[in-house]
Design a binder for these strands. Structure first.
Lengths: 176, 176
DNA sequence: GGTTGATAGTCAACCAAGTTGTCTAATACA
DNA sequence: TGTATTAGACAACTTGGTTGACTATCAACC
């Protein structure tokens, strides 16, 4: 039901190309990479080599009293495996401390160290710096609008965020 | 010169978190993935399983008379190695034809087959469909603005697009 | 007509930012 | 006591590319 253009039709390459070849997605990946590369470079300049925006996000979801890895994963919207890796790396840097949860011996409680807080403060400053550059290029109100538009889209398409996830088009009714 | 927050300072986690933990980059990767996942699913529904938006981009840069792999790479903003891989995959699908350049025996000329044009037409339709969904969620003029803003940013930070590229901060003047 | 340098393309390995799959250990419920 | 669930870890894979090293050809000079 989706196959419109019949194989017999003579298709004009140029006229198709004129409709705009650039897609939104094609713009986003390089920009995402640029943002992260800039952030990592600035982190390194401040003495936090080897850390990424994912590590920053982890701090952004950490409670003062400490947080379990699963909770962090859920809040970050990633898997617990990946979150566990971030935790391990941050611990090697001395930026967090892990302690076993006394109420559940399977669980690990993650808390920030003073050095970790220092990193997080630097990371927030770096974020502001880069977003400042973005605003200088595209205008402050455009960046603000970009932000809210991306947030709307991201929440609308969150079902598609994982790589090999469900296909919401086909599993509407599982009845008899 | 970049190290502002002194290690001695008592840093408040919560107040840092309130400044907004979500960054633009963190929004873009999931959205990019969502877009691509949707596109690939729709490609498959139209009988083009295994192809991606990168393949579509290649068609978007193909001349009617045929184009060399290096030229395609340059236009697409990728490496010739990656472009060569796309060409190989498209050829396996029968969507392009490669012929040696009579004027330069090192070079390969890539031309679209009728089946390839059919794929490109489908891919353009898919792009329109998905962008239509985007517009339904965020509003047509917001998506248009998103597009132009992303384009501005992408072209401004193109130096950072590649993974391990130069750092534009230090090479401003190349002397006498 | 031979050397020297650049260019087209290929093969293979790597990278980043995650993911899935499989497993163990601990817990909760009945 | 047994069964199902949950926290976390280890390892392998995926996507969309990249870099590095190499061959074949070409261009130019001298």
């Amino acid at each position: 039901m989706a196959n419109q253009t019949p194989p017999q039709a003579k298709i004009n390459l140029k006229s198709l190309q004129q409709q705009g070849t650039q897609s939104l997605a094609r713009l986003m990946l390089p920009l995402y990479r640029a943002f992260n590369a800039m952030a990592q470079e600035k982190y390194a300049q401040r003495g936090h080599a080897g850390l990424t925006t994912a590590h920053t996000l982890l701090f952004g979801n950490l409670d003062e009293e400490g947080t379990r890895i699963v909770s962090l994963a859920e809040r970050m919207g990633t898997t617990k495996q990946f979150t566990g890796r971030l935790v391990h790396q941050l611990e090697e840097h001395g930026y967090i401390r892990t302690t076993p949860d006394p109420s559940d011996r399977r669980a690990t409680i993650v808390t920030a160290t003073p050095e970790g807080l220092h990193f997080f403060a630097d990371a927030c400053a770096v974020k502001d710096e880069i977003e400042g550059q973005f605003k200088a290029i595209a205008g402050e109100e455009n960046i603000a609008l970009l932000f809210t538009t991306l947030e709307k889209l991201a929440s609308a398409f969150s079902a598609y965020e994982s790589v090999g996830s469900a296909h919401p088009l086909g599993d509407d009714s599982e009845g008899t």
